[in-house]
Simulated assay, not measured.
Amino acid sequence: MKKVYFASPLFSEMERRYNAHIVSGLRGNYPSLDIYVPQEQLEINDKQAYADSKMIANFDTEALIASDLVIAILDGSTIDAGVASEIGVAYAKGIPVIGVYTDTRQLGGDNLKKVEALREIGENQFHYVNLYTIGLVKLNGIVVASEEELVSEIGERLKK
């Protein structure tokens, strides 16, 4: 059974619901995967209980380095700091990463008005993501733009 670590922001109801939706779909498509989802780990992520930084780091890092693959949700106004850290650990340990970046502002790269607007201060119509973090993903994995692409990419990796 392949072990997958699901790296994603997990603090708002919206984030938790999105994570549950994605993971439920993955478990349905690939029941043989053992998917570790930090928000499901109540020992460290019950926000009414107590877990200090070392407990959280040890618990999640142990699961991360035991994984065969990391799925990293890159969406948000910036890449979540915890997700970026998890990507760094995965890179250092040689664990492949599939980054999921669904921000619709990435569309329109062939629209000349949008491209020309880049020359005017404050008129960037595209979303920016930290290139160092994206580079770490791409050096040992791939960035996909949809849930469908994620499901397909996992299927391709399971064939190997």
Rank of each mutant, 00 (worst) to 15 (best):
P31H: 06
L69E: 05
V83F: 01
E147T: 11
D103F: 02
V143S: 05
G82Y: 06
E147H: 14
I56N: 04
G108F: 03
P96N: 08
K3N: 09
A20T: 04
L118P: 05
N19H: 05
L10D: 09
V144L: 04
K3V: 03
A84E: 07
N124T: 12
L131R: 05
T78F: 08
L136Q: 15
E149T: 00
E147V: 10
L131A: 15
M14R: 14
K138D: 14
S53Q: 12
G155E: 07
I22F: 03
A63Y: 14
V97I: 15
Y91L: 13
V83M: 02
S146K: 02
T133P: 01
T133R: 00
A84K: 01
N130I: 04
S146R: 01
Q48Y: 12
Q48I: 08
A84R: 03
E40V: 00
L10Q: 14
I87M: 02
L139I: 06
V89E: 04
M14D: 09
G99Y: 03
K3D: 03
I134T: 11
A92D: 10
F6V: 00
N29G: 10
L33W: 03
L64R: 06
K93V: 05
G25K: 12
S53L: 12
G82K: 04
V144E: 12
S77I: 12
G109P: 02
F59A: 08
E40T: 01
S12A: 04
S146W: 05
R119P: 01
L112R: 11
G82F: 06
A81D: 11
K2E: 10
V151E: 14
K93E: 14
I121N: 05
V143G: 04
P31R: 11
Y91S: 10
M14T: 14
V37P: 01
E149M: 15
K47V: 11
D103I: 08
K113N: 09
I65W: 01
L42F: 13
G25F: 05
R105C: 02
G28Q: 14
D110P: 02
R105F: 11
V115F: 01
E149V: 00
V37I: 04
R105Y: 11
H127M: 10
T133A: 09
I44H: 09
E40W: 14
L131Y: 07
D103H: 06
N45H: 15
D68Q: 06
A57H: 14
D80M: 00
I87A: 04
E148L: 12
P31L: 06
I98E: 10
V4Y: 01
A72S: 14
A72E: 07
Y50W: 13
I95E: 06
Y101R: 13
G155V: 06
D46L: 08
A145N: 15
Y91W: 13
D34L: 15
E15Q: 15
G76Q: 07
E149D: 15
L33E: 09
